[in-house]
Nucleic acid binder design. Structure first.
Length: 587
RNA sequence: GGCGGCGUAGCUCAGCGGUAGAGCAGGCGGCUCAUAAUCGCCGGGUCACAGGUUCGAAUCCUGUCGCCGCCA
């Protein structure tokens, strides 16, 4: 029976390029999950988009003397390129600065207001007398009240790392004009009444959460049970963002955290319109059996297990998250990734020098599912050479080459199977349940390990059967062995497909099949009434494989095989580390 | 200060109540179809430390030490 599954990922801030920590934290896992579920025949929709609002964007814009929209126009297309190069198969990757998203967000706001979940209150904020405006946290700098660092930002001190309330700053300065002519004034804002949602959220968290990761569940439960939730401001005194749809508040904007999570829903609506099925979104949002998965990093847990579910309850009628498989952090060479300290491995950059599948492989093998992990270049090279190339790529290559050379470039016809043949074939059938079960439970490291074990079994099988000896004495026996081995690598092609779609596509072709198993990705321009924006779309409806043991036809013509993966020179590890150290100096 | 996590073979980690595991590194051997790839064997650990629960604990509980996050 086909299930309806909505797969979403965190919405990346559109103010810079993504690094491998982002990929390992959220985006890659979501793609593996989505590709697998599609092969299972489930009704999958995977959506996300660029987060275009908030001070990270405006700060970036000011640093470069351009508009926020120009920042978005630079980085959003780069995200679209990255998804295509890495094979992240969003059915729709859009952005938040669209008429659709604005309208849906304003609808949420007004519905929350009508339902009594939004209230007005005043808060204290710095006001710049020279600029005659309120200053959002990121627009005030001053001395940190805790460590005395003179360059602390209003939201956080970069020196001691503390989260600050801007009004605590000593000797505050305006970041817009540089002046110190500031005073604290009261400003009126709208607040989401999370206290009112505490009870309903507690009820929700108690039922059917056994599949949640312990860390996510414990954290959420602790917050809901002990920490009394407090109202959270939804609006800010800035100019970039979605206007507040209430007369008299035209100069305020909706706070980015509120509109960004609504993107999960608005993107589904946009997809429905683009595909000409205006009601299709209901499949995932209103049918109780539908499941929604949110792939995010651990810093985002409360937004997805408390705030967004609360917003959905307050809105009414929409499905709450089924699972929030949050990942932890990926460090590199023992140091935390940091854009400001220039300690990053940017994905678009490394994809200039390396193929996508080795990254997908390594980042899955060390995916931070239960704790922080450490990526090293040395391990990347080792996993590529010892696991991808030696175990899997070489298995495919040795079998294909043998068949191509000795059996007239065709799949040989097998004779009677012996126990050993049957044993391996059975293991390859069982692997679909084993690997699939792990992916269903979002245990992707375990899933990849299980697939690799089958490849190891196939290598053992060949060494025991020794078809290179059989071919000299008993051609029929060699034919059976090679048929069995081809059958198994054809199945491994499917088993590895969610993780390594690019190389599975190649193998699919070497085995003599036709057709595209990766699906098709394309960028298109969406025109609304007054604005237009770029989106990435995906069509996997023609994919000719399913999540089940394949049966290879004897006599099928093979194509000339090529190695699936390249070996990497171990010296590269040192070079890459040096490149990073050089890049970080002067930061 | 509060909350949480981690501490298992030289290295990276899995196991989370029933006689210590994998990969890599090291040593030896088999094979030669394959990207000198593969396959087999060997050495190597008082599972941080101290108590407790249990017929039985790396696995549960308490405390100590050492790292690391998040929040105050």
């Amino acid at each position: 029976m086909s299930k309806d599954i909505l797969v979403t990922t965190a919405w990346p801030y559109c103010n810079g390029d993504l690094h491998i920590g982002h990929i390992a934290g959220a985006y890659l896992g979501a793609d593996i999950f989505a590709r697998y579920q599609r092969l299972r025949g489930n009704n999958v929709l995977m959506v996300s988009g660029s987060d275009t609002h908030g001070t990270p964007i405006t700060v970036r814009a000011e640093e470069e003397g351009i508009t926020p929209r120009e920042v978005v126009d630079r980085y959003h297309p780069r995200f679209l390129t990255l998804w295509q190069k890495l094979g992240i198969s969003y059915d729709l990757f859009t952005e938040t600065d669209t008429e659709n998203h604005w309208q849906v967000t304003q609808d949420f706001f007004l519905t929350h207001l009508k339902n009594g979940y939004i209230y007005k209150d005043t808060m204290k904020q710095w006001y710049c007398l020279d600029d005659q405006q309120f200053l959002a946290d990121r627009y005030v700098e001053g001395t940190c009240p805790y460590c005395g660092y003179p360059e602390a930002r209003g939201d956080q001190c970069d020196n001691c790392g503390r989260i600050l309330d801007a009004i605590e700053l000593i000797n505050p300065r305006c970041r817009i004009c540089g002046g110190t002519n500031l005073e604290i004034r009261e400003t009126e804002h709208f607040f989401l009444d999370l206290a009112k949602l505490n009870g309903p959220l507690l009820e929700w968290i108690k039922e059917d959460k056994e599949h949640w990761r312990p860390k996510v569940l414990n954290y959420t439960r602790a917050q809901l049970e002990s920490g009394e939730l407090r109202g959270r401001p939804i609006t800010r005194d800035i100019e970039w963002g979605i206007p507040v749809p209430v007369p008299g508040y035209e100069h305020k904007r909706i706070y980015v955290w509120y509109d960004a999570v609504i993107g999960y829903y608005s993107a589904t609506l946009e997809w429905s319109h683009l595909t000409g099925q205006p009601d299709a979104w209901r499949t995932w949002w209103t049918q109780p059996e539908a499941r929604t998965y949110y792939f995010i990093g651990k810093d985002n847990i409360p937004f997805h297990t408390i705030i967004w579910p609360g917003m959905l309850i307050a809105y009414g009628g929409l499905n709450l998250p089924y699972d929030v498989p949050a990942n932890e952090y990926l460090n590199v060479e023992g140091r935390q990734l940091s854009k400001s300290r220039r300690w990053v491995i940017e994905v678009l950059d490394v994809l200039e020098r390396y193929d996508p599948d080795p990254w997908r492989y390594t980042l899955t093998a060390i995916m931070p599912e239960t704790g922080d992990v450490n990526f090293t270049w040395e391990e990347f090279i080792r996993r590529n050479n010892d696991e991808l190339v030696a175990t899997w790529g070489n298995l495919a290559n040795r079998v294909l080459s043998f068949a191509y050379k000795h059996f007239d470039k065709r799949v040989p016809t097998p004779g009677p199977l012996d126990e050993r043949d049957v044993e391996l074939l059975r293991a390859s059938e069982a692997a679909f349940d084993e690997v699939g079960g792990h992916i269903d439970a979002v245990r992707l490291r375990a899933a990849l390990r299980a697939a690799r074990r089958l490849a190891e079994s196939a290598n053992k099988y060949l060494n025991e059967k020794e078809p290179w000896k059989q071919i000299k004495t008993d051609r029929a026996a060699a034919a059976t062995t090679i048929y069995v081995a081809l059958q198994v690598i054809d199945r491994l092609k499917v088993l590895f497909y969610p993780f390594l779609p690019f190389s599975s596509q190649k193998l699919h072709e070497y085995l003599g099949y036709e057709g595209n198993i990766m699906g098709r990705q394309w960028v298109e321009e969406v025109r609304e009434k007054e604005r237009k924006h770029l989106v990435l779309r995906y069509d996997g409806s023609d994919i000719p494989i399913r999540w089940e043991a394949t049966t290879l036809q004897p006599g099928q013509s093979l194509r000339k095989p090529q190695p699936l993966f390249r070996k990497l020179d171990p010296k590269l590890a040192e070079e890459e580390v040096e490149r990073m150290i050089r890049g970080s100096q002067g930061a």
